[in-house]
Nucleic acid binder design. Structure first.
Lengths: 190, 190
DNA sequence: GTCTATATCAAGATAGAC
DNA sequence: GTCTATCTTGATATAGAC
């Protein structure tokens, strides 16, 4: 991907994190980059093409998170905190681009819908891998890793939405509560 | 509010749950109601006015949930399940309208932004009231009701987003995990 | 490969007839 | 109170110049 194309993709991702896929226009992109709409159309003929490029970039980000997650020297709590904060840093004052695309789902072309589904599945699988070592003998405990992973992931995503509109850092409190939940689960297994 | 006005508000709410505030148009509403755009503009001069009416309706819904929540004969688990399922039923195959408006936040006029902030605060306060009786002597335990409420509310909202795009009922699993978390918290207090 | 110019369409919105 | 007709603006998109 050449420079300008990458530049456009990066900006589109940033704007999707701020306003969402439906709300952004080629004019927004063109103005902020100091070029014309036609120049954006040259690199991405249709908005759908740009959306797909952005989805691919989000996937890359998630893949880079996966690397850290598979390091056995890092605790589960640290991995969750890393997962949450790494993303927070990336989308700054916006929201998670996956959440943003999920909300716009019904307005998306089919190719993008498929990628949003894929990203959603991927995030769930990452969180499952993160909590997968917490219970070594799941059959013997009452902990369901799938449910635990879903609750943790969902609560992180939900908290990011609330904190953006309220202007308060709610995520740290949610992460604290997640840690308490994990500690309690560990105790029940021992 | 007269009949047509109520009809338009109801439909707008439904469409916001499906596609979001930015994505819906007066033409969508007009076509589905079998009237013209101008007729919608008569009842709601600007889209902003319609958005405010929808926000007020969402607030009414939440207030009706609050009534059940304050019934002392209902358990916390039942209240949370009621909170989640009551909403799920209301927005059917869509997402939570509050989540939807949160995502579109940056595109909203100021009057609507204020209402979305108010709705967010209100939901958090409802969930706080739901969990408020679970720990009678909070100072003596390590349970933080604020964090617990935030995690529960966020995870419900997040789960609804994932399940809509994936076409799988993930919320029941998250509710199960929430119940397990509550049980563990209770045990720590006793 | 990037631009100008323009086409096309849909959006929000208004004036005024009935 | 609802409609027809119309305006303006902005969005996606294309053709063709440079």
């Amino acid at each position: 991907m050449n420079n300008r194309k990458k530049q456009i993709t990066d900006l589109a991702l940033k704007l999707i994190e701020e306003k969402g896929y439906v709300a952004i226009s080629y004019d927004d992109l063109a103005k902020q980059l100091g070029v014309t709409k036609a120049s954006i159309h040259y690199h991405f003929e249709k908005k759908e093409d740009l959306g797909v490029a952005v989805a691919d970039r989000i996937k890359q980000r998630l893949e880079s998170i996966l690397l850290t997650v598979n390091d056995p020297s890092v605790t589960v709590e640290e991995k969750i905190s890393f997962f949450a904060n790494r993303q927070i840093k990336q989308f700054a004052d916006g929201i998670c681009p996956v959440s943003s695309l999920q909300t716009d789902f019904e307005s998306l072309p089919e190719s993008l819908q498929k990628r949003v589904q894929d990203l959603s599945r991927f995030e769930i699988s990452i969180m499952k891998q993160i909590v997968s070592n917490i219970v070594e003998h799941e059959e013997e405990s009452n902990v369901d890793e799938e449910s635990l992973a879903l609750m943790i992931l969902s609560s992180i995503k939900g908290a990011i939405q609330y904190q953006r509109v309220m202007g308060i850092d709610l995520l740290p409190k949610v992460l604290e509560q997640i840690n308490r939940t994990l500690k309690n689960n560990e105790q029940r297994v021992l």
